[in-house]
């Protein structure tokens, strides 16, 4: 009987140890997965960017301590809550150039994850989304632009006319000199 108790106790201890071992493994694995998720990247520059020509270079910095190459995802939305966001860029470069935008506000955020050395995805998780950056496009006043266009056209016309008349005058002078000679 004692042997039976002893045997059950051993099994019980073994099962307990196994449980502890398995729990430790789960914790370690969880910890490993947690380290596969890099720190959150940051969008560089002011929180609110203003562009008067609809163009802007967005750039961001990843965590400097990361060993593997990072893949980034850049999202854009028209709302600060990122309702119906659209992915604008997914790749390993830390910037994206915007141009040709009309007046309006857009919100951007970026996140990162690690890639393995051969560029394939690791089962690691994405980082949290960065703090949002706002791009406010406010084109110059169209009336100002048209006015400057007209001023430019007038100045150019005056310059071209002066050059043309000057060249014609000097040609006539040269012809007259030759004739006199």
């Amino acid at each position: 009987m004692l042997q039976g108790v002893s045997s059950r106790l051993r099994r019980s201890i073994s099962a307990g140890a196994l449980n502890v071992f398995l729990a430790t493994l789960v914790l370690l694995a969880g910890s490993a997965i947690a380290t596969a998720s890099p720190a959150t990247p940051e969008l560089e520059g002011d929180r609110e960017l203003v562009s008067s020509n609809g163009a802007q270079l967005l750039s961001w910095s990843g965590p400097s301590e990361a060993d593997a190459t990072l893949e980034y995802e850049l999202q854009e939305s028209t709302s600060a809550e990122f309702d119906a966001p659209e992915t604008r860029y997914r790749g390993t470069l830390p910037s994206w150039y915007i141009s040709g935008r009309l007046d309006g506000r857009s919100y951007f955020r970026v996140r990162a994850r690690e890639l393995s050395d051969d560029g394939e995805e690791v089962a690691g998780a994405w980082s949290d989304w960065s703090e949002a950056q706002v791009l406010r496009v406010e084109h110059h006043d169209t009336r100002l632009a048209v006015a400057l266009f007209i001023v430019g056209a007038l100045v150019f016309t005056a310059t071209a006319a002066t050059a043309f008349l000057g060249a014609r005058g000097s040609s006539r002078e040269a012809a007259a000199r030759e004739e006199a000679a």
């Binding site: 020509n53 935008r101 009309l102 084109h139 100002l144 632009a145 400057l148 430019g152 150019f156």
Partner: peptide, 29 residues
């Protein structure tokens, strides 16, 4: 694609571009 994602590039009354036309020309001169 330009009309969809970068409409200002095809706009005739693109303010900054309008300002740059004769600016570029005079710069070249």
């Amino acid at each position: 694609a330009l009309v969809e994602s970068r409409p200002a590039l095809l706009t005739v009354l693109f303010p900054a571009a309008l300002m740059s036309v004769f600016n570029g020309l005079l710069f070249g001169l």
